[in-house]
Simulated scan of single mutants.
Amino acid sequence: MTQPFDVETFIQARKRTRVISDLLRTRASDHLSTLAPLVRPQPLFGEYLQGAPRGSGRESQHHFKAFRALFDKHAGAAPFNLMNELDIPLNVISSTPVLFALEYDIDLTPEERISVISPVRWVVGYSSFDLSRFREVINDPNRSSSELQRFVVHYLMLFHCFSKADGLGRLLRDLRFPISFQRLKGFGDLPFCVMGSPIDATLPDEGIIRQSTEISGSHSFEELIDDTAIDTMQDDLREQLLAAIRDMPTRT
Rank of each mutant, 00 (worst) to 15 (best):
E111Q: 14
L237M: 07
T26G: 07
V39R: 04
M83I: 13
F187C: 10
V152P: 00
I11R: 08
F134T: 00
L237Q: 08
I138T: 03
D227G: 03
C161W: 00
R246H: 11
P204K: 03
F134V: 01
I114N: 09
A243H: 06
H63C: 14
F177A: 09
L70W: 03
F129A: 07
D107F: 07
A75C: 12
P41L: 06
M233V: 11
C161T: 05
F100M: 04
L224W: 07
K164Y: 09
L86S: 00
T2H: 12
P110D: 13
A101W: 03
A52E: 05
E206H: 10
P191H: 12
R16Q: 04
T213Q: 03
S146D: 15
R251Q: 08
T252A: 04
G57N: 13
E8P: 00
Q182T: 09
T232K: 08
Y155V: 02
D87N: 13
I215V: 15
R176S: 03
E214K: 09
R27N: 07
A201F: 04
Y126V: 05
R251G: 09
P97H: 03
D87A: 10
R54F: 07
R150L: 11
T2D: 13
F221K: 00
M195C: 02
L203A: 09
F181Q: 14
P53K: 13
C193Y: 06
L99E: 03
A13E: 10
M1N: 09
I88S: 08
D130M: 08
V39C: 11
R113L: 11
A52F: 10
E136L: 08
F151Q: 01
T252S: 08
S127N: 14
I208T: 01
H219E: 08
D205K: 05
V98R: 11
R135W: 10
T26K: 15
L108A: 05
L184M: 13
L90Y: 10
L171I: 13
S127H: 06
S115V: 13
K185S: 13
S180K: 15
Q240S: 12
I199S: 06
V194T: 04
R133D: 14
S132M: 12
V137Y: 06
E136H: 12
D247R: 05
R121C: 03
G125V: 04
A36Q: 05
F221V: 02
Q61W: 05
F129N: 01
L131V: 11
L23E: 14
Q240G: 01
Q149L: 07
I88W: 07
G46N: 08
L184P: 01
H63A: 11
E222A: 14
P119M: 09
D105L: 12
M83K: 15
S118M: 05
R251I: 07
C193R: 05
R133K: 13
R173V: 15
D72V: 15
M195T: 00
A78Q: 15
F221H: 00
R135P: 11
L82G: 04
T9C: 07
R18F: 11
L184T: 01
L156V: 08
I230V: 15
F162K: 14
